[in-house]
């Protein structure tokens, strides 16, 4: 479904990705690992056309998206559900209005139907009580649950893209988010999760990619990752053993 071919990208004069090539199938569960500033989030933004590569090709369902206009990219973007770091809820809108936002944009539902749908979605994540609250009144975990529900409100995405969904959360909230992610992928939709939390990555993903210096240092399954002798990966794995012992 997603294909990167020799993709390079830089922010101004700072190179981020360098000749990156990989492909991901629709039903795969992929974790992109790496340190801060190594381009993990950039990959997600390139997939949905929020950023354009300096060189190389990105194909979604075999179709090159590099030169598509914003209008044409709309068709590409509805194939994905993207949840940004910390949820990115609109802070001028209530929880209800946030979840209703895509419903108003994409559907012709009546106010009553929207209200019903929003309540149903929030009930799934135990947040129906918070329907009239503003984002500033929510905890980090609640923020992300609302954001995930908002991303699936209007349409069934073929693939989920999560940008550090559990970063900054306590273990209980992180567990709730992980269960929600797994629950949403039950219907066969795959996901790409960008994280530096190995514990959550191991719990969620089947395939692991490790980024360093704009290149993929590692691409393989859990067993291969655990056997890896790459020093950066060993450092990440150490966090796992600390959590395991703890």
């Amino acid at each position: 479904m997603i294909e990167f071919e020799k993709v390079s990208f830089s922010y101004g004069q700072r190179p981020i990705l360098n000749d990156l090539s990989f492909s991901v199938q629709e039903n795969e569960r992929v974790a992109i690992l790496g340190g801060s500033g190594d381009g993990k989030t950039t990959i997600l933004k390139l997939i949905v056309g929020l950023l354009r590569p300096d060189s190389g090709r990105i194909r979604i369902d075999g179709e090159e998206i590099n030169k598509k206009t914003e209008e044409e990219l709309r068709e590409v973007r509805i194939k994905f559900s993207m949840v940004f770091q910390e949820g990115a809820l609109f802070d001028s809108l209530s929880v209800k209005e946030n979840v209703a936002f895509p419903l108003r944009e994409y559907t012709h539902m009546t106010e009553e139907e929207i209200d019903q749908k929003v309540r149903e979605l929030l009930r799934r994540v135990g947040l129906e009580e918070a329907i009239h609250q503003m984002p500033e009144e929510l905890s980090g975990g609640m923020h992300r649950r609302v954001a995930i529900m908002r991303s699936v409100a209007a349409f069934e995405p073929r693939m989920f893209l999560y940008d550090e969904p559990t970063t900054g959360l306590d273990p209980v909230s992180a567990d709730v988010i992980c269960r929600l992610i797994l629950d949403l992928s039950q219907k066969g939709s795959g996901f790409i999760i960008v994280t530096h939390k190995m514990f959550d990555a191991f719990r969620l993903a089947r395939r692991f990619m490790f980024l360093k210096g704009g290149k993929i240092l590692f691409d393989g399954n859990r067993e291969e990752l655990q056997r890896s002798t790459i020093p950066e990966i060993r450092t990440f794995l150490r966090e796992l053993s600390i959590q395991g012992n703890g």
């Binding site: 940004f84 936002f101 944009e105």
Partner: peptide
Amino acid sequence: LGHQVDTLRVFGVD
């Protein structure tokens, strides 16, 4: 900074 503008674009809103 809070990715709200990116979210708008993801939802197909200009």
